[in-house]
Amino acid sequence: MKIGLFTAGLVLASACFNAQAATQASQVTAKASSSYAKTKYPIVFVHGMAGFIRVGTDQFGLDYWYQILPDLARNGANVWATRVSPFNSTEIRGEQLRHQVEEIAAITGAKKVNLIGHSHGGPTIRYVARTRSDLVASLTAVGATNKGSPVSDLILTIRDIAPVLETPVTSVVNVLSKTITWAQGLDPNSFPHDSLASANSLSVQGSAKFAQQYPLGMPTTACGEGAYKAKYDGNEIYNYSFTGVGTVTNLLDIDSVLKATSLLIDGGRDNDGLVPRCSAKFGKTIRDNYNWNHLDEVNQVLGLKNIFAPDPVDVYRQHANRLKLQGL
């Protein structure tokens, strides 16, 4: 049987990753003081591009989901953080996540999980919903690149104009990807790294192509809502999303640099600095106009944000309660 080069690469990368899959998912624990966030199924978080679980040491480290997961654990949630390639295609990241979801289900004995993905994590969880719909109770996309990011398109356009830059730039970003892996105390070669594949997946065209194969929860109009409940292979999955539309939300926060990238998207309007509001729409919209930028959506950097905006920690806790009340 003949298979394409991409499929062969996907299988090979998946097999290499699966050999070390047991080291990639991490349960976050804390002494529970309430059952407010105690969902029926585990809540599994998936980071975006250039993401991680935790970099640094226990004493001087930085969590991607800053303060969010411990808070959920204190409120009764069975919560897990997953780790996929910082830079790679949605399909490769999706295969990595699928292995971890299967592992979490085996460890916990849970029949399903609730998946929450930020940024590139949004399409990544959609991949798992299609390939293992029997293991997915719900999908929540946060500031997700469901319809791509014009910033990625600009990068690819520059590459096309000056192809001589492709090799050095991709090499540098691949080194960054390996460095992020190393900073988590892992072998940098425990993941495949491909920054060009990441850029293609996050482009508007690449995202549209992915949506044709993985349409669950995607809006059918330019900026509408997708299906709140949808079925794959007879398995019903609930779909949610929320996002921000802020850029400079705290002058003391280094993520104010997202103001520059926001100008590349509709002249700086209606986006979180990297992702347009309409691109983040998926399933039932919880809210699409938080005064957060792309990093505020995961309570970064170090919780700095607009003091008048909702606290992301509270929003995630409330969403866990929403899943609980839905019987998920």
Rank of each mutant, 00 (worst) to 15 (best):
S198N: 14
H319K: 02
G121L: 00
P163D: 10
L115V: 06
N299L: 08
G51F: 04
N289S: 14
C223K: 07
L323Q: 05
D58A: 15
T108V: 09
G327Y: 08
L72S: 01
Q326W: 15
K284W: 04
I43R: 00
A73S: 13
P276F: 08
G185L: 03
V301T: 10
S26W: 05
T285N: 12
W80M: 03
A144C: 10
F191E: 09
S171H: 12
N18M: 13
G206M: 10
A144N: 13
V172C: 10
P310F: 03
G76N: 05
K231C: 05
E103H: 07
L69M: 02
G76H: 00
L304G: 11
V257P: 01
Q300D: 05
A141K: 01
I286T: 08
L252F: 13
H193C: 09
V84C: 12
S133V: 01
E95D: 14
R269S: 14
G234Q: 08
F6N: 07
G268Y: 10
G246S: 02
Q212K: 15
L251W: 12
L69C: 02
L216G: 14
V84Q: 09
A199T: 10
V275K: 00
F191L: 12
G4Q: 11
Y127R: 06
I286D: 04
V142W: 01
L328P: 01
G48D: 04
K231M: 08
